[in-house]
Design a binder for these strands. Structure first.
Lengths: 212, 212
DNA sequence: TGACAATTGGGTCGACGGACCCATGAGGAA
DNA sequence: TTCCTCATGGGTCCGTCGACCCAATTGTCA
């Protein structure tokens, strides 16, 4: 699990990004602050592997604080109006990544994973960076979840969508009720749960299925 | 359920906001687009009660498109650098709300509910607006969910946390297994579900409980 | 006071869920 | 070819779950 701290004075952005990152199965936002100094303070009380920092903040902008948080937490800088000048300043401050807020969430998620893995995205061209990020687009699932077969995932998705009865599951999947029970038994073992309720919750938590 | 369309060229912001609004029990983001023209086009194929529009977009900014989407969908304008000039332009275009991206999510959520309810937030002072929004801070829950008793909510929270067996629930709540089953039966009826798996999913969807 | 909701608990009963055993055919890997 | 996984399915069995009936206590509100 990658612990992420967000520093951005635009609360709407910060809270939205927090929700989005929390929906990833392998990341958890442990703090949201709205200034550089607050970021440093928050990191003393709550360790995090990655900090996502807005470069444009009042009250001492993000860049200064990045240089001060040291090596315990790696920083990814995001900017509304990304410029070469900003990128250079972020690089000198020790940031490991630099992104415009116009990038898709999946790119930032991949960057978070890459940076948490120890990669430095700053010295790369855009092409090199995107190539490197490709390896990080998929979340590393729990050992149990990773072992799920496609059919088992499918059943979990139906389960998390509210199709909980054996006969209904069998109907939608065009298989016998017995096969549904066999798949479920296998799922229970792999996810280390004991019934469909817990399996559905785990599926949602792991990002295999969405509640809606 | 309030259907919301988001128009913002900053994908990171749009996707984050989408996630955040979807986590509300009474709103559903039905589309995310990145330009004014795309917003108009999306609304023809997918109706929505509220559109959240960034005023600063390339390719014809948000204001122009607001005037053209008509009365079927009410617009709330959000801006990175909110100015009086922008506010005035938004008002003239027919927007029902205007917010800086620095406001907390709860404020925007309240604004979405207020605007969906037919309120116009543009002609108000900040004080009048905040007073009006207070009435909309809490989501209007489904009729069934609203009728849940505190004890029933408590059971749902345990259920969504993975405590699914009757004996375990009874143990944690210090009541007999029979009482647990009675409460569950009542919950099933109120939420219109037929077993604990569906109840747990509904609880998560309605925001009564969190999966973690 | 009287009515109602919430919480607690009882009993019964049929149906369903989950644990255990098993087999077969398809497909990929060594 | 042999081995393994995946998906399919069978059967049995016990425990649990959910539906139905019910009652006592407490507290609130008209």
């Amino acid at each position: 699990m990658i612990r992420v701290m967000i520093a951005d004075d635009h609360q709407l952005f910060a809270e939205g990004l927090s929700q989005a990152l929390n929906s990833l199965p392998d990341a958890r936002v442990v703090g949201v602050v709205s200034s550089g100094p607050a970021l440093r303070e928050a990191l003393t009380g709550q360790p995090a592997e990655v900090a996502i920092v807005d470069i444009e903040m009042p009250d001492g902008d993000g860049i200064e604080s990045i240089a001060k948080i040291g090596t315990s937490c790696r920083a990814i800088v995001v900017s509304m109006h990304a410029s070469d000048d900003q990128r250079e300043r972020a690089r000198r401050a020790g940031a490991k990544g630099f992104f415009s807020k116009a990038v898709p969430l999946s790119t930032l998620a991949a960057a978070v994973r890459a940076v948490a893995d120890g990669q430095d995205l700053m010295g790369l061209t855009d092409e090199e960076r995107d190539e490197l990020l490709e390896k990080f687009f998929e979340a590393e699932l729990d050992p149990g979840a990773a072992a799920l077969t496609p059919r088992e995932r499918e059943i979990l998705q139906h389960l998390a969508a509210g199709i909980s009865a054996t006969d209904e599951l069998a109907e939608r999947l065009f298989i016998s009720q017995k096969t549904v029970k066999n798949h479920l038994a296998s799922i229970f073992q792999k996810l280390a749960v004991s019934d469909r309720t817990q399996a559905a919750i785990e599926a949602i938590r792991l990002g295999i299925a969405r509640p809606n």
